[in-house]
Computed example of a mutant assay.
Amino acid sequence: MDTIFKSLADPARRTLLDSLRAKDGQTLQELQGQLDMTRFGVMKHLAVLEDAGLIVTRKKGRFKHHYLNAVPLQQAIDRWIEPLLVKPAARAVLDLKSKLEGNATMGQPDFVMQIFIKCSQDALWEALLDANVQSATDFVSARAERKGNTLTYFLPEDEVMLICTETELTPKTRVAATFEPKWEPDLPASRYVYLIEPQGDHCGLTLEHYELPPGQEDVRDGWARTLSGLKTWLETGQAHKFAGDH
């Protein structure tokens, strides 16, 4: 947690995060234009942010793309801010220093998130596909139901909120699926990918979201809250929905 706050203390690094918030997936050359400093200086700031888990990178061809990782920021909010308003924190701090394993076949993702969960690879894989676990961890839906390769999420009023159809499964390592929002009429679909990387007694889980249409930027925040719920479920066995003020 100290590395997160130390990295945020520098105004240059905050500028880089603001730039990625406005336009995710930028290269070093694009980010260098945001600061009046050398390429090497910008690289040093990016390295600090990556070590703190606030950005993750994905290499495509000759270029490395940088993505804002909202999960540690959400965890910091849950730990230090929400307890003052709601209730005491009861979850552990994440270790968020990692490398992203990308997928070169789907183009460049719109945003990437990464989280580490103390659980087995089997447990994480099963949780991602289990409708009951999804019901307990999704940040806003009341329940989820599975039919074949499709997970449907329902609002408390029993209206369909979201439909996710798995298009590719690589057992225990990768899930690719469509993302069809239904909370408003005629919203276009997009795609996402889960990547699982076992690391001793814990697993790294990376979420990549592709083809996100304009106007659906809040999906990023929803993913951060849902991943936090998944981590809590797998590490404590307790269901908690990080719904915020939605």
Rank of each mutant, 00 (worst) to 15 (best):
L28K: 09
F116R: 15
G33A: 14
R191D: 14
A9S: 10
W80M: 11
N149L: 13
D218T: 13
P83S: 01
P198T: 04
D18L: 10
Q199E: 14
P213A: 02
T15K: 06
V71T: 06
E50P: 01
L73W: 00
L205F: 02
L17A: 00
T170D: 13
I81Q: 08
G229I: 06
L128R: 01
R58W: 12
I55M: 04
L155M: 15
N103W: 15
L46N: 01
K60V: 15
A176I: 14
P198S: 03
Q238I: 09
L96I: 13
G244M: 12
D110G: 11
I4P: 00
E168K: 14
F242P: 05
A136Y: 03
L227M: 13
H240Q: 15
Y192C: 05
F63H: 15
L35A: 00
W223G: 03
L128D: 02
T57C: 10
E82D: 13
V112R: 08
I196L: 13
S120M: 05
T3E: 11
F5T: 05
V133H: 08
Q75A: 11
Q29T: 13
R39I: 05
N149D: 15
V71S: 04
K97P: 06
L155A: 15
W183M: 11
I115F: 05
I196M: 08
L28M: 10
L155R: 14
L49E: 03
A104F: 11
T170M: 13
F116D: 12
K59D: 09
P83F: 02
W223P: 02
